[in-house]
């Protein structure tokens, strides 16, 4: 059979294209223009070539130093929360009930943190972890541990990580739960007949079947944590010192606090390039995993 390809459907995308042109392409072009110039306001710009990029990529310069510091902080943060949220999410999904009234209850409970806006999550934890009036901070301090997230770097990081785990682990768990639900009963029956252990069932049935949703979960959680802004901004404001200043927070300080449009533009372009590259890798791995699975099934 000859498949007729009709590309006229692309015209249906035109309205979206127009919206994206105004909301993304023109601003992005402007950022590129800013990144090679310096401005003292009043819409006057002076050519600076690749100067800002040169500063940005040189860790001994002020701009490069803060850029690489926030980049490492961001990567460390993403690494830590992925290392906690993914195994924890899998464990929770495995422990969630499969049938009965408790399914609906646990799904609703799991979805609750996801419904809370970022700045509210930040505020909740900001109050919750305070050592004078916050339940968590007060309790920890009364246990004899000197805990103060506004003063100690480690405490600020622990609070941020716990907050993110609290907020987003259920996303991973719900995705994994969906993956688990799609496994036909026959697989488990076959495993029982073979006398497979609980671990063997997990390794050879459940984990491979969760592969695709796990990839999506890793992608979503990596991107979200790599772009995190609101929660640390509300909780610590990037402090103590610069200890929790992530890329997005630094960028806003640079662009709107110091009004260094050229430096901020250069930083945001490199930030954007990193995100674009990571997204492409994840997307490619995901689609090729899908294609492989389809070939196996066919």
């Amino acid at each position: 059979m000859i498949k007729i390809v009709n590309n006229k459907a692309w015209f249906l995308v035109l309205p979206v294209f127009a919206v994206v042109a105004f909301s993304v392409v023109l601003p992005l072009m402007t950022v590129v223009n800013y990144s090679v110039q310096d401005s003292f306001g009043n819409n006057q710009f002076f050519w600076n070539g690749v100067g800002w990029f040169q500063d940005l990529l040189d860790p001994s310069k002020e701009l490069g130093g803060r850029f690489f510091d926030s980049l490492w902080r961001n990567l460390l943060f993403s690494g830590i929360i992925l290392a906690i949220e993914i195994p924890l999410g899998i464990a929770i999904a495995l422990a969630m009930p499969r049938e009965g009234w408790s399914v609906a209850l646990s799904l609703v409970l799991m979805a609750l943190p996801l419904l809370i806006p970022w700045n509210v999550v930040g505020t909740i934890w900001q109050v919750f972890a305070r050592s004078d009036i916050g339940l968590l901070g007060w309790a920890v301090n009364n246990l004899g541990i000197d805990y103060n997230y506004t003063g100690h770097t480690l405490d600020a990081w622990i609070t941020l990580v716990v907050m993110d785990v609290w907020h987003w682990t259920s996303l991973v768990a719900l995705l994994c739960y969906a993956g688990l639900k799609s496994i036909p009963d026959a697989y488990y029956q076959a495993a029982r007949i073979d006398g497979a252990s609980r671990w063997a069932v997990f390794r050879t049935i459940q984990l491979p079947k969760m592969r695709r949703v796990l990839l999506i979960a890793v992608l979503l959680r990596f991107m979200d944590s790599f772009m995190i802004y609101t929660e640390p901004f509300v909780l610590t404001g990037g402090g103590p010192g610069n200890a929790t200043t992530f890329l997005s927070i630094d960028l806003v300080k640079l662009a709107l606090g110091q009004f260094d449009l050229g430096k901020a533009a250069a930083m945001s372009l490199v930030y954007n390039l990193i995100i674009l590259a990571v997204c492409w890798v994840f997307y490619t791995v995901m689609t090729s995993a899908d294609a492989k699975a389809e070939r196996v099934e066919a």
Binding site: T30, N33, Y34, N43, F45, W47
Partner: peptide, 9 residues
């Protein structure tokens, strides 16, 4: 003018 064009970009 707000887009700050240069001939290079």
């Amino acid at each position: 003018a707000w887009m700050a064009w240069t001939w290079q970009t």
